[in-house]
Amino acid sequence: MSALSLLPARRSVPGVFVALTLTLTIGWLVVLLDGGQLFNQSTTVSLLHVAAGLGLVAVGQTLVILGGSLDLSVAYVISLSTLVAAETMNGSDGAVLPAIGLVLVVSAGVGLLNGLLVTRFRVNAFIATLGVGLLLKGYLDNGYDGPAGTTAPSLVHALGYQRIGPLPVSFLLLIAVTAAAWFALSRTRFGHHLVAVGGDPEVARLSGVRNDRVLVTAHVLCSMCAGLAGIYLASRLGSGAPRVGTEGLYDLESIAAVVIGGTALAGGRGGVIGTVGGVLLLASIDAIFNQLEVDAFFKQVIRGVIIIAAVAVYARRAMRKAA
């Protein structure tokens, strides 16, 4: 059999980083012409902060989407997590670790529920996670009118505002979580099985993969990532915020970042590195528009266009590959 056109599997840079570089270059020029400076200390730091929050959620979202599922409950998990964290700490530095632990347990519980609904009860992921999200929304709307609890000052300092050079600690956390997720996907059986389940559940099943277990694990990890994002937001805001997740559109934005990052919405193809690229792209656009003081509505239009364009580009590529 000929070795014709048999390149080793593509390990090239995802296209999203090309788009990111272009966006930053153009943005930098436009802002410069406008008389501003895109990359000064404060804008860069705030860009990375935005990226850290969205990034933590999106990395988790990548896992479930790779497995062919989806999580629409993340926004509510974030809100809930900020409250759990802030109320458990109640301003005391001694309670930081138990609070973080509790948040992770609670979010893992939500993930477990999502996962079981999707696998055991065969509820469509869209509906199952939306339902669980609304459940949480009910709890939050009923119990809270506004901010509650106080985040421990040490955590606010460390995770919310401290930097190493230009890099906020929270962004380093994102890098660490991304690295862990990348490692899990490429070097553990769980990762290999997850991609297989997303690629073709039947093939995975016939190859001896326990599909349900893999997918439940992915949902638990996804929710825990949202929990981490909640802890970060609590440290940023200094208290628990019952609507921060939904107001930040973390559910849809995280899915958008995953898709822009080149992960197939149907599962089975993609990875977390691309997702971080997608997150940075969305955050950069935010930063550029903030600098230019663009109208908020127009900003949304541009974001919409970018998301559609990204998906269209990937669809075209997939078509060419198939041909």
């Binding site: 070097r187 553990t188 059986r189 290999h192 190859s207 001896g208």
Partner: peptide
Amino acid sequence: LPERTVAENVYLGHEPVRRGLV
């Protein structure tokens, strides 16, 4: 799985493991 490599397909479900990692 068209998106995975030959090796990943061949060993899907029983990937060789060393020290807990593939």
